[in-house]
């Protein structure tokens, strides 16, 4: 095992190898193990057509399913200090960031901020990207949420957040922890402006994200089966040394324990959000409106 076998050989192999059929043409449903064809999944908003399991979904797909005619504008996150603590574990944080950006796009971060028309009215939507370093919240996510709040206030629009995160970005250590009060300030600003702040909890939402902006919504919606909680299940198990109850920390469990208002199927998300926002803002019923452009 050396540099040649570890690094150079796989690279060469990758160059020479014949491109085989992409592996992701077929995908096994993590819940019922049914093989699902990627086009069917896409058409069904990444919901298993056998068991209704909601698979994780990329922000771009989420946003185009949500906004009127699938049209929206994304807003670049404010520039923030990269690697403020010069953090290094087994890898440098800067290298981990580069890897994540290589996989997810050049300026990607764990949050996407978008705006557009939702049911004919302007809305600001922030979506956490779990594929980017586990959706972890660092300074960029905090700044992004503050920016989203600002956009909502400037446009007198509701702020809708789709949460999905493992929690704080450990590599930003204490500064990631400080995003809990900072994102809370973002939420407070939206509420003070008299605008709705709606959280859609998606799989998985845990740690410092749940314990800050994701639990402060005027309304909490969860996607079916989503894992929602504060402590990780392994940590809890190590503490209590018992098996966890069935369905623990799932959306349905959180509904039963009073933490979410409703569990909404992905197919019904757009209509539900439009209805809630219109009711909160005392707008006319949708059928009275001119048809969406």
């Amino acid at each position: 095992m050396n540099w040649l076998t570890n690094f150079v050989r796989p690279k060469l192999r990758a160059l020479v190898a014949r491109k085989e059929a992409p592996e992701n043409l077929w995908l096994k449903c993590p819940n019922c193990e049914q093989m699902l064809f990627h086009r069917d999944l896409e058409a069904n908003q990444q919901v298993c057509n056998q068991c209704n399991h909601h698979l994780r979904i990329k922000p771009a797909a989420r946003l185009s399913q949500l906004f009127d005619d699938g049209k929206y504008e994304t807003h670049a996150l404010p520039r923030t200090v990269l690697d403020p603590l010069k953090f290094r574990d087994r890898k440098r944080y800067t290298d981990r960031l580069k890897e994540a950006q290589a996989e997810n796009g050049a300026n990607a971060e764990a949050l996407v901020v978008a705006s557009g028309k939702l049911g004919g009215y302007q809305a600001v939507v922030s979506v956490c990207d779990f594929a980017f370093m586990g959706g972890s919240m660092g300074i960029a996510v905090g700044e992004g949420l503050l920016m989203a709040a600002g956009l909502a206030i400037d446009n007198q629009a509701p702020l809708i957040v789709f949460s999905a995160s493992g929690g704080a970005r450990m590599q930003e250590a204490i500064l990631s922890l400080m995003q809990m009060p900072r994102t809370t300030i973002a939420v407070q600003r939206v509420k003070e402006a008299g605008l709705p702040y709606i959280v859609v909890l998606t799989d998985p939402t845990t740690g410092g994200v749940t314990a800050s902006f994701a639990m402060l919504g005027d309304i909490h919606i969860a996607e079916p089966g989503a894992l929602i909680g504060f402590s990780g299940q392994r940590v809890i198990q190590d503490t209590i040394r018992e098996t966890l109850p069935p369905g623990f920390q799932r959306a349905e469990y959180q509904f039963d324990h009073g933490m979410v208002d409703m569990i909404v199927h992905r197919h019904k998300m757009r209509d539900t959000l439009i209805r809630l926002v219109n009711l909160l803002l005392k707008r006319p019923a949708e059928e009275d409106l001119p048809a969406a452009a």
Partner: peptide, 26 residues
């Protein structure tokens, strides 16, 4: 750290912490 237990989760540990931060700031 906050108590990591089934009972704490059942009663909304995350919400309790989020709300505390909010109350501090208010």
């Amino acid at each position: 750290g906050a108590y990591p237990g089934v009972d704490a989760e059942a009663r909304g540990q995350a919400e309790a912490i989020a709300r505390s931060i909010e109350v501090c700031l208010e």
